[in-house]
Amino acid sequence: GSLMYASIFGNVSAIIQRLYSGTARYHTQMLRVREFIRFHQIPNPLRQRLEEYFQHAWSYTNGIDMNAVLKGFPECLQADICLHLNRSLLQHCKPFRGATKGCLRALAMKFKTTHAPPGDTLVHAGDLLTALYFISRGSIEILRGDVVVAILGKNDIFGEPLNLYARPGKSNGDVRALTYCDLHKIHRDDLLEVLDMYPEFSDHFWSSLEITFNLRDTNMIPGSPGSTELEGGFSRQRKRKLSFRRRTDKDTEQPGEVSALGPGRAGAGPSSRGRPGGPWGESPSSGPSSPESSEDEGPGRSSSPLRLVPFSSPRPPGEPPGGEPLMEDCEKSSDTCNPLSGAFSGVSNIFSFWGDSRGRQYQELPRCPAPTPSLLNIPLSSPGRRPRGDVESRLDALQRQLNRLETRLSADMATVLQLLQRQMTLVPPAYSAVTTPGPGPTSTSPLLPVSPLPTLTLDSLSQVSQFMACEELPPGAPELPQEGPTRRLSLPGQLGALTSQPLHRHGSDPGS
């Protein structure tokens, strides 16, 4: 009898404990919600809404976190579960008819179910419309201010047509639940991603989709105040780019002037030289400038040598048109050559190039014969006009050509200096018209024969001689050997007369 009593008592207590286990969990969670309300000092109306929603959600799901349970299964099984949970929507909604099984599984994985109690606001006026909503159960109302403009029910759709707008718009009203509602919502990016994977279904979906109420604000059109608020930074940046392009296009129409201050000032006329910023005076940081632009901040801005204009002085008759350009485009679109090309026009420029290279940067340069637009006047290309890779490749080509020119210049200078040193070592320090008596009659020769300089066969020296023939050397430049009979510069000019005159010897006659 005691054994029977113990078994009955144990079973009854276990049954009672299981009955009250759900209630215990409910009270535990309710205590957490109330502690949250007390800690954050939530006001009474919002506090009442929180408690009511918790009670309804507990009775609806029995305190089970559906998302946590669903995430515990593998992905393939999750797709089947989501397809079952959203079967009513996918079967009865017209846009989803005719979709393949794979497309429906992908869509079912992207849908999220939302449960809303009465009085809950789903979308506020001015919120971004980031999702498309399908009503599965219940009814909602749409308000503009305090005026109800629409009441939607089961199988209705609200949001915005995503295929017509590249960016999400703003809501033009509040969406509030009238009863307990079940909503299926899919985010904008998720829907577009699935439709991109199934393009054959995309056309059918957009053609058959009928949005019951379009929440997009109709005033959000390009150029409206609301649109400016939504895309303020983007609009200002776009206007700045367009104004920069218009100014650079105007600059290219004036090829007669070359400016070292950047493309923003290349198009300024002579009357605007004294102004601080020219056409860019209202925004000094709008356009890029070269490193020399920092010198323009000092006094005497109108007389600054940074602004270059072609000189009108005539060229000498024998002067060549100019050196070879550094870039391939210089032959086609440049009416002034790079300062480095002028360094190779003569030997005198070679000796004085490194010492006063900055001073020569603004000297007169030889002109190319074609009066085409200036290379320095070409505006900086924006990322939309020329690819970045093209600019980098041009810079690399320019750097390689500069290296080759520097190597060639160093070799030419070394060769010229070597020839000058050899000339100085071969010439005796001094010569006299009267020579010392020699031991015999073989001493009648006034000077030792001097062998002429070897013929220069280097390509670089031939180019130097060509430049010497075309360029007029300055007075202080050293002379180079030329073709024809060679003669030492330090010898007297009348050596031929010395050989014809008898030598005057000093000596005593033994017979006297």
Results as ranks from 00 to 15, higher is better:
126 G>W: 01
126 G>H: 01
131 A>P: 02
132 L>Q: 01
134 F>Y: 07
134 F>I: 06
136 S>Q: 08
136 S>W: 05
137 R>L: 04
137 R>E: 11
138 G>V: 02
140 I>T: 01
142 I>L: 01
143 L>E: 04
144 R>I: 03
144 R>L: 06
144 R>S: 12
145 G>Y: 06
145 G>P: 01
149 V>W: 04
150 A>C: 08
152 L>N: 01
153 G>I: 05
154 K>G: 06
154 K>Y: 04
156 D>N: 04
158 F>P: 01
160 E>G: 03
161 P>W: 03
162 L>Y: 12
163 N>H: 11
164 L>H: 11
164 L>N: 08
165 Y>W: 13
166 A>T: 12
168 P>E: 05
169 G>K: 01
169 G>A: 03
170 K>E: 03
172 N>W: 11
172 N>P: 02
172 N>F: 08
173 G>R: 05
174 D>S: 07
174 D>F: 04
174 D>P: 01
174 D>L: 09
175 V>T: 03
177 A>R: 03
178 L>V: 10
179 T>M: 03
180 Y>W: 05
181 C>V: 09
183 L>V: 12
184 H>Q: 08
185 K>H: 13
185 K>Q: 13
185 K>D: 04
185 K>G: 07
188 R>T: 07
189 D>P: 03
189 D>K: 04
189 D>H: 07
190 D>F: 01
190 D>S: 03
191 L>G: 01
191 L>D: 01
193 E>S: 06
193 E>C: 09
194 V>L: 04
194 V>S: 02
196 D>R: 10
196 D>F: 08
197 M>I: 06
198 Y>A: 03
199 P>C: 02
199 P>M: 01
199 P>Q: 05
199 P>W: 03
200 E>S: 06
201 F>N: 06
202 S>E: 10
203 D>W: 07
206 W>K: 06
206 W>Q: 11
207 S>R: 09
207 S>I: 04
208 S>F: 05
209 L>R: 02
210 E>G: 05
210 E>R: 06
212 T>N: 09
212 T>S: 07
216 R>G: 09
218 T>E: 07
220 M>A: 08
222 P>F: 05
222 P>L: 08
222 P>Q: 08
224 S>F: 10
226 G>H: 10
226 G>P: 09
227 S>R: 09
228 T>R: 09
229 E>P: 13
229 E>V: 08
232 G>L: 10
233 G>E: 11
234 F>T: 11
236 R>M: 11
236 R>D: 11
236 R>Y: 09
237 Q>N: 10
237 Q>C: 12
237 Q>F: 14
238 R>N: 08
238 R>I: 13
241 K>R: 09
241 K>F: 07
241 K>V: 14
243 S>M: 13
243 S>F: 07
244 F>W: 12
246 R>G: 13
246 R>T: 11
247 R>K: 11
248 T>F: 09
249 D>K: 10
251 D>Y: 12
252 T>L: 10
253 E>N: 08
254 Q>P: 10
254 Q>I: 12
254 Q>C: 13
255 P>D: 11
255 P>Q: 10
256 G>P: 14
256 G>D: 07
256 G>M: 09
256 G>K: 10
257 E>M: 11
257 E>G: 10
257 E>H: 04
258 V>Y: 10
258 V>D: 10
259 S>M: 05
260 A>C: 13
261 L>K: 12
261 L>H: 10
261 L>Y: 12
262 G>C: 10
262 G>Y: 10
263 P>E: 10
263 P>N: 15
264 G>C: 07
265 R>T: 14
265 R>S: 14
267 G>C: 12
269 G>T: 11
269 G>L: 11
270 P>F: 13
270 P>G: 09
270 P>Q: 15
270 P>K: 03
271 S>V: 13
272 S>H: 13
279 P>Q: 04
279 P>V: 12
281 G>C: 01
284 P>F: 13
286 S>F: 15
287 G>V: 09
288 P>K: 01
289 S>L: 04
290 S>C: 15
291 P>F: 15
291 P>S: 13
291 P>Q: 15
293 S>R: 05
293 S>W: 12
295 E>F: 07
295 E>D: 05
296 D>Q: 04
296 D>C: 06
296 D>T: 05
299 P>N: 06
301 R>G: 11
303 S>C: 06
305 P>I: 15
308 L>A: 08
310 P>M: 12
311 F>H: 04
311 F>D: 14
311 F>S: 09
312 S>I: 13
313 S>G: 04
314 P>R: 06
317 P>Y: 06
319 E>S: 07
320 P>S: 10
320 P>W: 06
321 P>W: 12
323 G>W: 04
324 E>L: 13
324 E>W: 06
325 P>F: 13
325 P>A: 11
326 L>E: 07
328 E>A: 13
328 E>N: 04
329 D>S: 07
331 E>D: 12
332 K>M: 10
332 K>R: 13
335 D>T: 08
335 D>V: 08
336 T>W: 06
337 C>W: 12
337 C>T: 07
340 L>N: 07
340 L>Q: 14
343 A>H: 15
343 A>S: 11
343 A>M: 07
344 F>V: 06
345 S>W: 08
345 S>T: 13
345 S>M: 08
347 V>C: 09
347 V>I: 15
348 S>A: 10
349 N>Q: 09
349 N>K: 15
349 N>A: 08
349 N>R: 12
350 I>Q: 08
350 I>M: 06
350 I>S: 10
351 F>A: 12
357 S>F: 15
359 G>L: 07
359 G>R: 09
359 G>P: 15
360 R>D: 07
361 Q>L: 08
362 Y>D: 12
364 E>M: 14
365 L>F: 05
367 R>Y: 07
368 C>N: 15
368 C>F: 06
370 A>M: 06
371 P>E: 08
371 P>A: 10
372 T>M: 09
373 P>D: 10
374 S>F: 07
375 L>P: 12
376 L>H: 12
377 N>E: 04
379 P>M: 06
379 P>H: 04
380 L>F: 08
380 L>V: 13
381 S>V: 09
381 S>L: 08
382 S>T: 05
382 S>V: 14
383 P>D: 05
385 R>V: 13
385 R>T: 12
387 P>W: 13
388 R>V: 15
388 R>D: 15
391 V>A: 15
395 L>Y: 08
398 L>W: 13
398 L>C: 04
398 L>T: 03
398 L>A: 04
399 Q>P: 03
399 Q>R: 13
399 Q>N: 05
400 R>T: 05
400 R>N: 15
400 R>S: 15
402 L>P: 01
403 N>R: 14
403 N>T: 11
403 N>I: 04
406 E>N: 08
409 L>I: 08
410 S>P: 04
410 S>N: 15
410 S>D: 03
411 A>E: 15
411 A>M: 09
412 D>Q: 01
413 M>V: 14
415 T>E: 04
416 V>T: 01
416 V>P: 04
417 L>N: 01
418 Q>W: 03
418 Q>R: 11
419 L>I: 10
419 L>A: 10
420 L>I: 08
421 Q>H: 13
422 R>V: 09
422 R>N: 09
422 R>P: 08
424 M>R: 08
425 T>S: 07
426 L>S: 07
427 V>E: 05
428 P>L: 09
430 A>G: 09
432 S>K: 04
432 S>I: 12
433 A>Y: 10
434 V>D: 07
436 T>D: 08
436 T>L: 08
438 G>W: 13
438 G>Q: 04
438 G>C: 09
438 G>N: 15
439 P>K: 09
440 G>I: 05
440 G>W: 10
442 T>R: 15
444 T>L: 07
444 T>A: 08
445 S>I: 11
448 L>I: 06
448 L>H: 15
452 P>V: 11
453 L>M: 15
455 T>N: 12
457 T>K: 13
457 T>A: 09
457 T>E: 12
458 L>E: 13
458 L>I: 10
459 D>K: 15
462 S>C: 08
463 Q>R: 10
463 Q>P: 13
466 Q>D: 14
467 F>E: 08
469 A>I: 11
471 E>W: 11
472 E>I: 14
473 L>E: 13
475 P>M: 08
475 P>Y: 04
477 A>Q: 05
479 E>M: 13
479 E>W: 08
479 E>L: 15
480 L>W: 04
480 L>A: 09
481 P>S: 07
482 Q>Y: 06
482 Q>R: 08
491 L>Y: 04
491 L>A: 12
492 P>H: 06
492 P>G: 10
493 G>A: 07
494 Q>C: 13
495 L>Y: 06
495 L>P: 12
497 A>F: 08
498 L>D: 09
500 S>E: 07
500 S>M: 13
500 S>Q: 08
500 S>F: 07
501 Q>C: 09
501 Q>E: 14
501 Q>R: 12
502 P>L: 11
504 H>N: 12
505 R>K: 11
506 H>Y: 08
507 G>W: 11
508 S>V: 10
509 D>M: 05
510 P>F: 11
511 G>A: 12
